[in-house]
Structures are given as structure tokens and as C-alpha cells.
Design a protein around this nucleic acid. Structure first.
Lengths: 231, 231
DNA sequence: CGCGGCTTTGATGTTCATCAAGTAAAGTGG
DNA sequence: CCACTTTACTTGATGAACATCAAAGCCGCG
């Protein structure tokens, strides 16, 4: 359904510039014949920790969380990310199985290409390989940086940090609907749910944010930045 | 001084199997002419955070720590690692400048190759590219995994974790000389120095480890594993 | 020997998790 | 659409975990 006689829709995909910029039209055509698109509703799982990796997947639209389960059974959220960051990411070239799970926080569309196909392309096309490596490196750097940033802060600093993360990186808006529960924020920053809520209430009381259910408005972004920096 | 008329010593380097296994003898020769070896004493800095990246560096022998400085000025240790893990690692293909500093915890030898040369090789030789990507991915996975492991534990669990890390990953021996100060352990696991020391004293008192200055002997590794798991 | 840095331990206070109890919101089945 | 159930959220009270501060011991080095 995605084809119209010979003209592949991947040609015009925005993603082409992100990882597939070094492919000529022939290869793109080929890619298109190997790809599959999958729509996911909020909450659906895209990859399961421990599952065998057979596809190269990337997020075309939506929002996802990357997480793993600790031995004691609770969830540890590694990052929350928008399209153009990979989904079945890092481990593709290092592990046979997923290290982490990925699930949709909003309705999402994922593109999948057989891993074998990507690997062949990688071997044949140096430019593609370089582009892919750079992209993967950027993503890894970002995750590591984020984790270190968070680790070094205290409770209020961490909460301020995620609020800023949503404001600037995810929604690019001072008003947004929280895509996660309070508990998920807690799992993300490594704090207890009760204290995350308490801190949000404090921010609200101090006029730094306004809260209407899931909707958050950052009222005083400078103050939030200060708290994030010094917290 | 590393050459003997035409025969390149890189040919026999153990590292060849790690990243350079897909290079034929010609390329190895070429590589060898572009490489430079650097000996570093304990404490010397190999890469400075913020410095421009111009070389692909890897650790041939020794032990290094990867770290960054927080805005407030204290050190955050990202990982401690042996040879065959890269040194000027991750960011090579994603950033123009080092995100992290690297310094020698023991006397070390580092091999350096002009980054441009590696990039050319990467573009020309798919097998090499694939090998390099896999290696980088493994390293990134390891760092992320380690960080998540640590984050999820409490004080005693973290201390047990690093002791096990030294025992199994770094020294492969139940007796070893700590290559880092107590403060560095604290910077590694994100706890205060005093509490790291206290915990080590507790372990000593309970007969789990024996301590002679910098020398540590893990006396009861099962107990340590239990603490690390449940802590 | 004496100075400075690393280590150790105790005392104290802060930060944070946990528990409990209650309220709001969101599904679910009739 | 309403009653019911469940899940998410909220707040307070309490105690545990941990940081911080201070003082003293140790060790290496000039």
C-alpha cells in the first residue's frame, strides 16, 4: 500500500537525511522494498529486553521510552526520546539480543528493516557506514551524558532537569502534556514517586510551574534552570 | 625505532585482532607508518575534556579512568578500564571535541593514529568499519549498563560492586592493589568519601575483605556478591 | 623532622525512602 | 450512564540512609 508503481515513498522520507543520506536512488528503492512500517498505540512495546534482534528499527513519529527491569523487578528508565533517534538502538551491532525494552509513550510509527540488509549496506557503502556510526555515537553520548547529569544532582535538581528536558528537547514548548506518570519520572531520575510528587507540588506552590492534571506549564523557566544547575 | 626495515611491528600486535582484523598486510603496514606510541606515567592525562580530537587512541597496556568535571568542580568517574577498550572513545565520530577526560591510573602505553587515517580506512574497508562499530557499541553498552547497575544500588551494594569489578574485570584476582584513592571510588559510585571508607571498614570488620593499605584481598566473594546483588 | 595529603572514625543534621491514609481520576461491566 | 473497581496521585509522619563537619592518625616526601 505504500508503493505507487516503481516510485518508492522512502525517497521523500525525512529520515533519508538522517541516516540514509549516502544512498543513491537505487539503494533507496531497494531499502524501501525491505522495509516495513508499524503503527503502535500508546503503551505498546516495540522491543522486549532479551528478545532476539532481527530488525533495524527507527522511530518515524511518536515518543518512546527506553528502559530495563532491575533484578528486584522495578523499572529503570534509561531515556525518553523523539523520532530520529534510533529505537532498537545501540545493541544492534554489539549484541544478539536487546539489552533494553522500548515502548511507546504516545502513538508511534516505527520503520523496520531487516538487520541483514542494513549490515550488507554498511559493508558496501562507506558513507552510509560513517553516517550510521556517527548517529549511533551521538545517541550513546547523549544517553551517557544525561545519566551523568542526573546522577550528580539532588532530588529537586533532577525534577527540574526532566521538566526542562521535556520543555526543550521533547516538546519545544513551555506548555505540554506530561507523557509519563509521576512514577515513570521517578523511575527515570532514580527517586521515589512520593518525593517526585512532593517536589512538583513545591514547584507549583512557588509559582515555578502550573499544573492542570497531566498538563504542565513552565511559568518561570529561569528559576527552573537555576534549580537544575545548582541542585 | 619501532621499525625494522620494512617489517612493521604492528603486524604482530595483539590489538590487530581486536579492531584491525580486517586489514591486509599492506594496510597494516600503512597503519604502522601513521601510528605513534606514547608512554604515560601514572597520573598523566591522555585526553582533556574539551580538547580537539585529532587522533584515534587506544590503550595498549595499563589502566585508565574516564571522567568529567561537574559544573560545581568535582570529578565524576564514568568508568575504569583496561586495554582493548578504546581510550579516546565514543565521541570520535560524533563530536569534534572530547566530552570526557582520560588519565592513567597505572603506567600505560597508548597507540595513536591520525583520526583522518582511520576515517579513510573506515570508508574504504567495510569489514574494518563493521568491526569498529561493533567494538564501540560494546563499550558504550558496557558503560551504560555499569552506570545503571550502580544507580540502582545503595551504598554498600555499590562498594561491593566496585570491589567485584576490580576483582573480576580488572585484575582477575582476589588480591589486588587498589589503583584508585578512596575518594576516586566515591567519585565513581557517586557517594561521599567518608561513607566509602566506612563501608570498607565494615566489610573488613565482617571478614569479607582484608585490607593492607592499598592492597585488598577479597576473603568472602560469595558474601560480597550477595551484598552487591541485594544492596 | 615536619608538612601536606590521604585516610579513618565519631557526631550531627539533612535528604530522602517508606508507610499509611486519603482523594481524585480513569477504566470496567452492568 | 452509573456504580464499582482499580490505578494514579497527593500529603503527612516517621525513620533510615547518607552527607557533612571536625578531629585525629597515618604515611610519604622534601
Amino acid at each position: 500500500m505504500n508503493e505507487k508503481k516503481g516510485v518508492c515513498i522512502c525517497e521523500g522520507c525525512e529520515f533519508r537525511d538522517v541516516v540514509f543520506s549516502h544512498l543513491d536512488d537505487n539503494s533507496i528503492q531497494d531499502l524501501c522494498n525491505h522495509k516495513e512500517e508499524q503503527s503502535l498505540s500508546k503503551g505498546e512495546v516495540i522491543n522486549h529486553e532479551g528478545e532476539k534482534i532481527s530488525n533495524f528499527k527507527y522511530l518515524k513519529s511518536g515518543l518512546v521510552k527506553l528502559y530495563r527491569r532491575t533484578p528486584s523487578g522495578d523499572e529503570q528508565i534509561i531515556t525518553i526520546t523523539r523520532p530520529f533517534e534510533f529505537v532498537s538502538n545501540m545493541s544492534i551491532f554489539s549484541e544478539e539480543r536487546y539489552q533494553y525494552s522500548v515502548s511507546a509513550l504516545e502513538d508511534s510509527v516505527v520503520c523496520m528493516v531487516k538487520l541483514e540488509f542494513i549490515k550488507e549496506l554498511f559493508l558496501k557503502n562507506g558513507g552510509f557506514a560513517m553516517g550510521l556510526l556517527s548517529k549511533i555515537s551521538v545517541i550513546n553520548d547523549k544517553i551517557i551524558g544525561q545519566t551523568l547529569d542526573i546522577r550528580q544532582k539532588n532530588l529537586v535538581g533532577r525534577v527540574a532537569y526532566v521538566l526542562l528536558y521535556f520543555t526543550r528537547e521533547i516538546y519545544n514548548s513551555r506548555v505540554f502534556d506530561l507523557p509519563v506518570s509521576r512514577k515513570e519520572i521517578a523511575d527515570y531520575i532514580g527517586m521515589s514517586t512520593a518525593n517526585v510528587i512532593r517536589t512538583l507540588s513545591d514547584f507549583k506552590r512557588e509559582g515555578i510551574i502550573r499544573v492542570f492534571g497531566k498538563t504542565i506549564e513552565v511559568a518561570d523557566i529561569e528559576k527552573l534552570e537555576n534549580i537544575s544547575r545548582h541542585g
